[in-house]
């Protein structure tokens, strides 16, 4: 949860407020929190809405999380030197995507969620998530290619097959949707 929040705020200490608010909501709705592996995406879904609210009312502070905020205030995470430029470019390319596409890619790569779990977070059918994911990857490749990051050799030889396979999976997944 803290990682989710830290990866989506500008100031690390703001993540403390996101976590506090999310946990407070979860505690108040404890009866609604799913058990097992579904709890994590459920919490991410709450955190996503907390983040959205936080952007409306920026710099809200929670008394609950003062200590955590203090600890995170000292957190500085430098990129690995070799990755600095690439990371900056990738993040910039992500920022150019549609918000839903961007978030689905982040949930996939940063939080390691599967499409059915992402569906819980973003409140979309799993088949729609897969469609978004497919489209987001395609658009990100395009953006990275413009920035000179996507390799031409792999980009042109491998993707065709992947795209076809993805499309078949999409059809199959869509048929599986209740």
């Amino acid at each position: 949860m803290l990682g989710y929040a830290l990866r989506r705020v500008v100031q690390p200490e703001d993540a403390a407020d996101i976590v506090a608010e999310t946990m407070l909501v979860a505690w108040r709705r404890i009866d609604e929190v799913p058990t097992g592996s579904e709890a994590r995406p459920w919490l991410f879904g709450v955190a996503r809405r907390v983040l959205a609210n936080g952007r409306r009312g920026s710099r809200r502070r929670h008394n609950l999380a003062e200590r955590l905020r203090g600890e995170l205030g000292a957190l500085r995470v430098p990129d690995q030197p070799a990755m600095v430029e690439t990371s900056v470019l990738v993040r910039a390319a992500l920022d150019r995507l549609e918000p839903d596409d961007r978030e689905i890619l982040r949930l996939t790569s940063w939080e390691g969620l599967q499409p059915h779990e992402i569906a819980m977070v973003v409140e979309m059918p799993a088949a729609t998530v897969r469609t978004h994911l497919h489209r987001a990857r395609r658009r990100l490749r395009h953006e990275l290619e413009r920035d000179g990051l996507a390799r031409d050799d792999g980009e042109r030889s491998a993707p065709t097959g992947h795209v076809h396979r993805d499309e078949r999976e999409l059809v199959r997944d869509a048929e599986d949707e209740p």
């Binding site: 990682g3 990866r7 690390p12 990371s87 990738v90 993040r91 992500l94 940063w110």
Partner: peptide, 8 residues
Amino acid sequence: LVAAAAPV
């Protein structure tokens, strides 16, 4: 590549 670009 996206995972490696995560801020944290």
